[in-house]
Design a protein around this nucleic acid. Structure first.
Lengths: 249, 249
DNA sequence: TATAAAGTCTGACGCAGCGTCAGGGTCAAC
DNA sequence: GTTGACCCTGACGCTGCGTCAGACTTTATA
């Protein structure tokens, strides 16, 4: 089934002019052109257009998009997964901006005070997503999804929980320059373990250790944790590993 | 305290060239210029720059941003609130895209089938955020913020929690065509109440009722809840209200 | 204190990604 | 066969900077 420009435009939300443009630059050509020169698009082109739009949303250059789609080892599925990750990251950035904005609102109201740096968190635009291609996958998608689902649903109750956790983290962060094997640190880590278990999930020693690993392997966690102090994520990973090993013995 | 271009650039993530440009077009001029022609920015300009960047993120033209900021009835606080809403909407769009993408992935894998329209959901770019000015506020910022904080920090443990909650919701959703005052429904609602309390927050009857209200007043909650079945949010609000009233009596 | 390195300035040009005409053909319906 | 809705192809314009180039200043180092 072939569609004309206006239909494609309608369906996808881009302008007819844009389709012309994409044709001109060889990014997306119609499957057929009638004698009168009318463009006609098939399902294939729609798919390609979807790809294009995703990449465009991520800030890619049209030229670059073309190269990607043309590349012989372009794997649709892999590309989709990559795009998903990039979008998630973009959302994370947006979330940071929203938080910054909310803080600013409070700041203006005089409820809190922000440093200049805090006022601009989330605004760094130097993110060429394609450069990150080589970056590690963070894998655990399920975690992500469930986090998301929960974040979207859970109401007030979280506040309390969050506060508890924050207090605990602060306490631990204060110890981050000590040897993670000391009694004091290990006791605090024990609290952390208990806290997690209290949330309904029984962490086996390995799982607990794995969680610690995640803190250093997954950038997002690292970034979050390091807000409590430089090197906090590494410290936690080490301390949690030690505790897990001891429990196992 | 005055800062030079590079400092401002560093702090805010924009390029020096951009600052030049904004000066040139009269969007953001330094407070002072030294004899040598060096630009010097004060706190005020930083605030203004933050405003500019927010609006820019929302896709406003620089010219338009200038007009807004110059307008005599420009109220900083109101503008910030507006921006917040616009950003939330942007995030909603991004969420839609992510969902579309995930669906596409499943589609490619052959797990499901999508219509063409579904393949492009979230791609409509005809969103001039300023037009939406008249839209309703959704209020409850605190809820939002705490959700956010937690979502960014909590790891694996949530999975379990989320599963529990989902199960409970499913159970409740199955009853959504009954009278919310029946014994059965109220017992389940009691479970839900207990679940929330178990998370560390003691819900007073009013707070619990208020939470129910939120489910129908706040679009985001409504959408989420209604995924469990049409009218589920309304049902929950009613049932929670009834329980709260009974507890109070 | 001299000199190198790093930062800053002002043009000027370039570029992506279309929007927006203008001028002209085409299709479908009545 | 005429009307109105579509479609085409140039061509020019516009925004928001990036990217030199060439000259001056400021700061760090020796």
């Amino acid at each position: 089934m072939l569609r004309k420009v206006s239909e494609v435009a309608e369906l996808t939300g881009v302008s007819v002019r844009t389709l012309h443009h994409y044709d001109r630059i060889g990014l997306l050509s119609p499957e057929h052109v009638t004698e009168a020169g009318y463009r006609q698009y098939s399902e294939q082109e729609l798919e390609r257009l979807q790809q294009i739009l995703f990449f465009r949303e991520l800030g890619f250059r049209l030229k670059h998009i073309g190269e990607i789609l043309e590349s012989p080892d372009f794997d649709r599925l892999e590309a989709l997964e990559l795009q998903r990750e990039a979008l998630l990251e973009k959302r994370a950035r947006l979330d940071r901006m929203i938080r910054t904005l909310e803080n600013t609102i409070q700041d203006v109201k005089g409820e809190i005070e922000l440093t200049d740096k805090e006022k601009f968190e989330g605004f760094d635009f130097s993110n060429n997503p394609y450069e990150d291609e080589a970056r590690k996958r963070w894998g655990n998608e399920a975690v992500d999804r469930s986090n998301q689902a929960l974040a979207n649903m859970l109401p007030e109750g979280q506040k309390r929980l969050g506060e508890q956790m924050e207090a605990l983290f602060r306490k631990l962060a204060a110890m981050r320059h000590q040897d993670p094997a000391t009694e004091e640190v290990q006791r605090a880590i024990g609290e952390w373990h208990a806290f997690l278990n209290g949330m309904g999930y029984a962490y086996s020693p390995e799982a607990f250790k794995g969680l610690g690993q995640l803190y250093v392997q997954d950038e997002r966690f690292t970034r979050n944790m390091d807000q409590f102090g430089d090197g906090f994520a590494r410290f936690m990973a080490a301390a949690m590993g030690i505790r897990a090993d001891r429990l196992q013995a």
